[in-house]
Design a protein around this nucleic acid. Sequence first.
DNA 1: TATTCCCGTGAAAGCGCTTTCTCTTAATAT
DNA 2: ATATTAAGAGAAAGCGCTTTCACGGGAATA
Lengths: 333, 333
Amino acid sequence: MATIKEVSDLAGVSQATVSRVMNGNNKVSEINRERVMAAMDKLGYQPNSFAQALATNRSYSVGIVVGTLSGPFYGPMMHSIESVLRNEGQHLIATSGHDDLEQERDAIRFLNSRRVDAILLVVQAMGDDELIEMCQRNPNIFVLNRYVPELANRCIYLNNELGGYLATKHLIDLGHTKIASITGPLVHLDARERLQGYRNALNEAGIEYDAQLVVEGLYQEDGGNKAAAKLFQRDVEFTGVVCGNDNIAIGVYDILSLDNESPAERISVVGYDDMFYSRYLRPKMTTIRFPIEEMGTIAANMVLQNLSNVDLVKGVQLEPQLIVRESSAPPVG
Amino acid sequence: MATIKEVSDLAGVSQATVSRVMNGNNKVSEINRERVMAAMDKLGYQPNSFAQALATNRSYSVGIVVGTLSGPFYGPMMHSIESVLRNEGQHLIATSGHDDLEQERDAIRFLNSRRVDAILLVVQAMGDDELIEMCQRNPNIFVLNRYVPELANRCIYLNNELGGYLATKHLIDLGHTKIASITGPLVHLDARERLQGYRNALNEAGIEYDAQLVVEGLYQEDGGNKAAAKLFQRDVEFTGVVCGNDNIAIGVYDILSLDNESPAERISVVGYDDMFYSRYLRPKMTTIRFPIEEMGTIAANMVLQNLSNVDLVKGVQLEPQLIVRESSAPPVG
DNA sequence: TATTCCCGTGAAAGCGCTTTCTCTTAATAT
DNA sequence: ATATTAAGAGAAAGCGCTTTCACGGGAATA
């Protein structure tokens, strides 16, 4: 790979001049600028970004730690982040923490040694305290999809309680009174918040909360299946289920299909997140829309803003939205 | 951020010694090693990887250009690649080309300026010639999910023809004789190959190829819907459809559902790729499994092998596999 | 014509590492 | 005891850029 020296030699100017044309510095004569451009072109010159970063102490890249690089949740998020960063000449370095504390730390360490200009954290395993300490040391860390009071202005998160409320309220409005809830793991704040929303809606409607109707499940894969099975094995009646996420709702779909039943017939189900595949399901799933792309966009813009020294960034709370499709209906009888 | 100098000062040794303990060089006395470690710890030292890269001319990172960071196809692939690289102390820098030639070039340029140790290309827009030229200049480029004869030993690809054959053969074995095919865009080699597989199976069974039964669609989103609609509007009979990918198959699901029909009742449908959500569909989709994760793993290992100078890497062709689920059944009547 | 100013330019230092080369000291062989 | 070797450590150069500073020469001002 050609270096700046080769370019400057070929163009018959100093390295400083080459550097100036690269960086759009206007204190270069037209004639020299052209010579340099020609030389660059001829050599297929690509500046070495390591050298640049070392000299400027800026890497023009931001790092992100997500749970996994695959999956319907993080993908769209990274996608929207990358889009806006790219537009501003920044780049995204993606690493995954696999929801494991050690791996999350490891990823952060890596990004630090990469001297990224900012870090976006979408982590589960790491505790609040560690997060707080980190953010205090480094003003360019942002926390996505999680709310830590002490870090209020570095958090971009969803109003999960509202979502839980909307889902439950929807069923209540349809006429349901016996409504079950399959939550995500309650160690996660968002799961607790969603559950709280469920309780709020119940409360508002004067329906008593019944612990028998609540079961805790996992967000992933067949975690939904198992939890749904557990609910159905309990000897309680219900005509609607609000789920901690779409996967869990799919678990309910599955259980129902075992009896050749379909959601919305005897039992209505409401998901949460509106993953892109929810609309491929039959019946199409009623769910709570999580504006993931928007979260990504906002995060990226926040990073950008923060970098340009406008140190006025503030945390953002996003609003979920009820999407009514076909898996919910008035109760029969 | 602390520098090596601060560490060496604090430890009372030279920078060279600090560097040595960092890199596991054994020519350091135990006592000094401990001093250095302690100093590093105390300062929370993280080596600046730019400086390291500049000095060693190695970045310990590999770049990948995919179509999009989101979506069910690239996600799992990147995931598996990252996993194996991570294990070897390498890291993944992910960029997306959005299936647009300029953006693909741009991404590659970026990765080059980042001096990644290797580049993984999963590109659609770029032509073979450009690819070939690139690979000739840079021995550390690999091409995924695409076969270019001139680049045979740098390609990791699927035997698409076999997949098309298997899908079609499956329907034939079930007793179908009137089998339609909705292909992906035929500008793509893989779509052509899959179609060829379809023809081979037909041919083998002595069924005549009928152009009326073949329609070209798009891989994305509702591309499947439109193509399916077109097929159904033609005045031809068929009892089975093999699709260019799962999305297209979903399009068929949709069309059928408009008439309150379900796949496998009157018309069997076979997908291609086995995206993770295919099993969330009802009826569960019969499809061709594309070993995406495996492709990622192999690619990553190939990169690693190539970097350790074992210049014996060879291209790999992966085999697809028929997954029979519920969307295919013997023809009625 | 003499003085000031500004613009374009190059020399050189510095960014934070690695690595070669040299030197010192201790261990081993004679 | 001396001669040889090996091990551990530091000085310094170099990686490819950016940026400060100083300089020279024409344009502008007096």
